[in-house]
Design a protein around this nucleic acid. Sequence first.
DNA 1: GCCAACGTTGGC
DNA 2: GCCAACGTTGGC
Length: 152
Amino acid sequence: MKYWLMKSEPDTFSITDLAQRPGQIEPWDGVRNYQARNMMRDDMQVGDLVFFYHSNCAEPGIVGIMAVAKAGYPDGSAFDPDDKHFDPKSNLEQPRWFRVDVQYVRTLSRTITLHELKLKPELADLALVRRGNRLSIMPVSAAQWQFILALE
DNA sequence: GCCAACGTTGGC
DNA sequence: GCCAACGTTGGC
């Protein structure tokens, strides 16, 4: 089993939104970055655990845990001309973008803030805290996962 | 709202 | 293949 971290702007989609979805499952679509695409398409498996990270908000940080409920499959939002994330270069025969389904696991008792994570030498290699990082999906090692959870 | 850091696009 | 222009991300 692997561990991941996925960012979302809470104004667009928050951990609370996920918890209120039917079955508490949500397709994680609209990702238009090749590195993130490759991870969803090739590496994320059912049962993998994922930190839910709130970005671009008053208190950026990890707010909850979710699980991969469905491995990578073509992101249909790329085929829909009315969708914000429509991409005319993606098609059914050769889909360019992929998504996974995620399922709510739990909300943390508090937000583990980006500020706090940056202060920990143990997390120096975590992509999230590295300068200039903009990846919206990133791997988390088992050691990093356990360390972060122990901060809760 | 600002802006640094990236990623992508497209002319050449 | 280079690189300037442009668009986006996301902390602050």
